[in-house]
Design a protein around this nucleic acid. Structure first.
Lengths: 150, 150
DNA sequence: AAAAAATAGTTTAACTGTTTAACTATTAAA
DNA sequence: TTTAATAGTTAAACAGTTAAACTATTTTTT
């Protein structure tokens, strides 16, 4: 498939995705407690959704080495927001779960972040945002497939 | 404006934007030389586009403190990819420009990154991608306005 | 014109996130 | 029962970030 202005489309995509990434990150950061980072928020958010998960799973989700996850989880354990428990059937595996404090923190924070996202999503028509998210989700699937292929 | 499933839309947006951000970053990184980072690519890309720019401008673009830009530009100067020159009219101002090597590097790299982005953009119909980018650009404008307001 | 305030950029210390390589412990496969 | 593979950690080195204090210069106020 070949478009006339493919070069221009790519330029627009690169510029806009960079800007949205940085500005959205800044707005999310603004909602968090002083001592918490965006990555820590996304990590806790994921554990909350899955109830429990492993380092390997997080490394794949974040697209980083497992040792990066070890470092991040160490900080969250130190803060008392998550805990490690070994699988009794396969003692290589370590499950990460939220502590009570971790659960409270992510609940409160999710509320703030939801309000933030609502505040800009509500500036689009329902049809526009639905179409946008559908294409975005298709893009996510394509990127995940490409990762495996390359 | 109130949607029925606003909560669900926000959840989808948060999940998909996180995944696309991380996976796209991994794919871009894969195209770069070993010793170059994504942020360095985006910084050089911006200087190329503007021909010359200042720390303050980059700090605003990246949404970070000026000292973060100083650190980044120091590394790029050390690598011989950019250079600093003082404005003769206002000697507080330092302009950043590409060196010849910096220009060559960004030209080669832009070609690789364009091919990468084309490879997934071409999986959408022209109408779908045009609509998507338009909404994405509208989102970028909204986020930039919000930043000023908050 | 002199003093005060604002602007552009740098330095430093401390921290988060990241990779690579070497490592431990455990389980699965030959 | 060796050998492989898997799950996770450690340590060193670096990129990116913030906050606060700083230098140098220009603009505004009085």
């Amino acid at each position: 498939m070949q478009y006339e202005n493919i070069h221009h489309l790519v330029e627009r995509y690169l510029s806009v995705s960079f800007i949205v990434m940085r500005k959205a990150a800044a707005l999310v950061k603004y909602e968090l407690d002083e001592d918490m980072t965006n990555d820590q928020y996304y990590l806790l958010r994921y554990i909350k959704k899955k109830a429990k998960c492993t380092s390997t799973e997080l490394a794949s989700l974040f697209g980083v080495n497992k040792s990066a996850i070890t470092a991040m989880t160490n900080r969250l354990v130190k803060k008392g927001l998550i805990q490690r428990t070994r699988d009794q059937n396969d003692r290589r595996v370590v499950y990460l779960t939220l502590t009570e404090r971790g659960n409270e923190w992510i609940m409160e924070t999710e509320e703030k972040i939801h309000k933030l996202v609502e505040s800009f999503i509500s500036k689009f028509s329902e049809e526009e945002i639905e179409t946008f998210i559908q294409t975005y989700e298709k893009l996510a699937r394509i990127l995940q497939e490409m990762e495996g292929a390359s």
